[in-house]
Design a protein around this nucleic acid. Structure first.
Length: 412
RNA sequence: GAGGGUGUAGCUCAGCUGGCAGAGCACAAGGUUGUGGCCCUUGGGGUCGCGGGUUCAAGUCCCGUCACCCUCCCCA
């Protein structure tokens, strides 16, 4: 019988990694709630056309990375490759726009993209993300960025922040034409990939890392010269707000994102500590998407962060509660052991009752291996041992021992 | 989709030009008949990723295939 293995690009997250995963998610949740965001739990499967229409027909995600299949009812569906499209769909479908004011939503969970696995990149990966619908002031851009920064800070992760503005939809279209014409004249100087990008997505050429492309585009027209005054003003305000919050950032006029729906503000939090997949969190504004998907004209913005990439950067996990190991000295005391463990757990103490029979020595080895801070020996006169100091104290009865132990473990 | 590297014990790896599958760590038992960590002794574990070929003989050579790692592309 051949061993069944996990499918390429999928992973088991366990042990230390599972702790990191939880640390990342719980930290983010705490901050989302601080900013008064509400959770939305979105489906993992959506109609294919949702992603075609939002992420963009010509994008790599849609062209070659989506898990697409027909369900038993003949519906063409996809495992979601990202979260924003679903959030927008729900915003429209559930009528959240009718609640008035603006909506602030966050989500967490798996995304699926059929890509070649690599460091910090999997076919099933996990994101946390948040979206703001109906807020159009640059205040919202600033708050969103600040919130992402708060999360990264709380996780102890150092990054650099790059920001750019793509302008509104119209001025961007105008610029793309100008840029395409510029690039066509220099087509021969570009790398093979960029020759293809020229037609599909000329903005990406500016993002190319190949030396000769950087050289060839040195004097390329700059997007910011083509965008509307309104967009420029928004960007100036945003920069001002970020400065007042003490957020340091780099203006990168060539920053482009791979999803079609972005307008105006885009940003990326980047690290160079984890190899090529350095973008750890990214997002931006998408003022036309809600309308484009059939909803009311609604300004919106959001971000997503890759949990696995954040995990690679998490160095220190928060301290865990002390573990108490309950050891019946001989099996005659098993029942007493069950009771004591029960009472400790009711007090909120992390307790392990040794689940193996055998010599006391083997049970102690287990207690040590599990990282027990205290051991309770269950016998006529229960004893409490501090595994760090080796000190051991004997008690008349279990009550007294539990009182003393509670004092030691639950001290603030 | 393109390029490079690696698959041998649970883990990290050694195994020269083909000649009986190894080490360290981990695990289990014992040295202490009711007390962990250190030390010592003993022990259990492997279709050498999978399939085919060459050969008297393949972990080792050849072909294919799968997976993982890294880079490009793209993205979180």
């Amino acid at each position: 019988m051949s061993q069944i293995k996990k499918v390429r690009g999928f992973q088991d997250i366990y042990g230390e990694n599972a702790k990191k995963y939880r640390f990342v998610v719980e930290t983010a949740r705490r901050i989302f709630e601080n900013y008064n965001f509400n959770e939305i739990i979105l489906p993992y499967v959506e109609d294919v056309s949702l992603f075609v229409r939002s992420v963009g027909e010509e994008t790599d995600i849609v062209q070659k990375e989506m898990y697409v299949f027909e369900d038993r009812g003949g519906r063409k569906v996809a495992l979601r490759p990202e979260g924003t499209a679903s959030a927008v769909r729900a915003y429209i479908e559930e009528g959240l726009y009718a609640k008035g004011g603006y909506q602030k939503l966050f989500y967490e969970g798996a995304m699926f993209r059929y890509e070649r696995p690599q460091a910090g990149r999997y076919r099933q990966f996990h994101q946390i993300g948040a979206e703001i619908f109906g807020a159009n002031s640059p205040l919202s851009d600033a708050e969103l960025i600040k919130m992402v920064k708060d999360i990264l800070d709380q996780l102890g992760i150092q990054t650099r922040l790059e920001v750019n503005t793509l302008g509104d939809f119209e001025s961007r279209k105008k610029y793309i034409e100008v840029l395409r014409n510029f690039l066509k004249e220099r087509k021969d100087l570009l790398c093979e990939d960029c020759k293809k990008r020229l037609e599909r997505n000329p903005l990406r050429v500016l993002d190319c890392k190949v030396e000769k492309c950087i050289e060839a585009t040195k004097d390329a027209p700059v997007l910011i010269d083509y965008i509307s005054d309104q967009s420029l003003q928004r960007f100036e305000k945003l920069k001002e707000y970020m400065k007042s919050l003490g957020i340091s950032f780099i203006f990168n006029p060539r920053l482009v994102r791979g999803l079609d729906y972005y307008t105006d503000t885009v940003f990326e939090f980047i690290t160079d500590k984890i190899g090529a997949q350095g973008t750890v969190a990214a997002g931006g504004r998408y003022d036309t998407l809600v309308k484009q998907l059939g909803g009311p004209d609604t300004p919106a913005l959001g971000f997503a962060a890759g949990i696995e990439r954040l995990m690679l950067l998490v160095e220190k996990l928060p301290e865990e509660k002390d573990l108490v190991v309950v050891v019946p000295v001989v099996s005659e005391f098993n029942i007493e052991g069950l009771k004591i463990a029960d009472r400790l757990r009711k007090k909120g103490i992390k307790t392990e009752l040794v689940l193996k029979e055998g010599s006391l020595k083997s049970k102690m080895k287990l207690a040590n291996k599990m990282g027990g801070r205290f051991v309770v020996f269950v016998s006529e006169n229960p004893e409490l041992k501090d595994m760090e100091t080796g000190e051991q104290e004997r008690f008349e009865n279990a009550e007294d021992l539990i009182d003393v132990l509670t004092e030691k473990v639950l001290k603030p």
